[in-house]
């Protein structure tokens, strides 16, 4: 019985306490370090080129087949990434591709703002993946 009265006063006190709620569009929850979001193609800070050479290992690794990579040979026999497409609707954010990448050319950003009306918009091209949205934390 005493506990019931205590519970009553807990509820009563809650009215005057600060709510735990994070007011979403204004405040944002800081996502912890190393959290797995959308893939991000790393850019070499010196030459401003994409590190990825398009070897296609991530394509083989990915169980869902959500990555498509194509490489193109430039002059002097140098191989350059031609096309890198990520199908978000298939991705399960397991992070295996990052782990297996030998060039260390991709990482996972903190990007979670992903809902789309059209399923076609969920396919991200190279230009969108390079965007530095994920380099610093992009919550929400």
């Amino acid at each position: 019985m005493l506990r019931l009265i205590k519970n009553f006063f807990i509820v009563f006190g809650n009215i005057f306490r600060k709510p735990h709620t994070i007011i979403y569009p204004r405040e944002r929850i800081i996502i912890p370090d190393g959290s797995r979001g959308v893939l991000h193609l790393k850019v070499d800070p010196d030459s401003l080129e994409i590190i990825c050479k398009g070897c296609g290992l991530c394509k083989i690794i990915c169980s869902q087949g959500c990555i498509t990579v194509q490489k193109r040979a430039e002059d002097k026999g140098r191989e350059v990434l031609d096309e890198f497409c990520l199908d978000l609707s298939k991705c399960i954010f397991c992070g295996n591709c990052v782990e297996f990448c030998k060039m260390n050319a991709i990482d996972m950003s903190y990007k979670y703002q992903l809902a789309e009306f059209d399923k076609k918009n969920l396919k991200l091209e190279k230009t969108e993946l390079v965007k530095p949205s994920g380099t610093i934390r992009d919550f929400w």
């Binding site: 509820v11 809650n14 009215i15 306490r17 600060k18 709510p19 735990h20 709620t21 007011i23």
Partner: peptide
């Protein structure tokens, strides 16, 4: 409003 505040919601 009040029941929300009782749950520490907004």
């Amino acid at each position: 409003k009040l029941t929300a505040r009782m749950d520490l919601r907004r």
